[in-house]
Amino acid sequence: MTNYLIETPLLNYKNQIIQKLISDNHWDTLDRTEQVLSIYNFVRDSILFGYNRADNISASQVLKDGYGQCNTKGVLFMALLRALGIPCRIHGFTIDKKLQKGAIRGLYYHLSPKEILHSWIEVYYDGKWLNLEGFILDVPYLTKLQQKFSQCSGSFCGYGVATEDFKNPSIYWNKNDTYIQKEGIVRDFGVYESPDEFFKEHRQDLGRIKEVIYKYAVRHLMNRNIRKIRQL
Rank of each mutant, 00 (worst) to 15 (best):
125 Y>S: 13
186 V>N: 02
211 E>A: 14
167 K>T: 15
179 Y>Q: 09
151 Q>G: 06
210 K>R: 15
175 K>D: 08
37 L>H: 15
182 K>T: 02
210 K>P: 00
181 Q>S: 15
50 G>W: 01
168 N>P: 02
29 T>N: 12
186 V>C: 06
81 L>K: 08
187 R>Q: 15
63 L>H: 08
133 E>L: 00
120 W>D: 13
197 E>P: 04
106 G>N: 07
156 F>A: 09
141 Y>H: 09
113 P>H: 11
144 K>G: 10
52 N>F: 04
119 S>W: 03
60 S>P: 06
218 V>M: 14
132 L>K: 03
23 S>H: 10
149 F>Q: 10
175 K>W: 01
29 T>V: 12
145 L>N: 09
138 D>F: 00
83 A>N: 09
39 I>M: 10
7 E>T: 09
99 L>N: 10
225 N>L: 06
145 L>C: 06
37 L>C: 11
221 L>Q: 14
33 T>P: 04
119 S>Y: 09
203 R>E: 13
174 N>V: 08
16 Q>G: 07
104 I>S: 05
132 L>Y: 11
221 L>A: 14
87 P>K: 11
73 K>N: 07
210 K>I: 02
12 N>D: 15
109 Y>M: 00
213 I>K: 09
184 G>P: 07
5 L>I: 00
194 S>D: 12
213 I>T: 09
181 Q>E: 07
230 R>Q: 05
98 K>Y: 02
161 V>I: 15
97 K>F: 11
201 E>F: 07
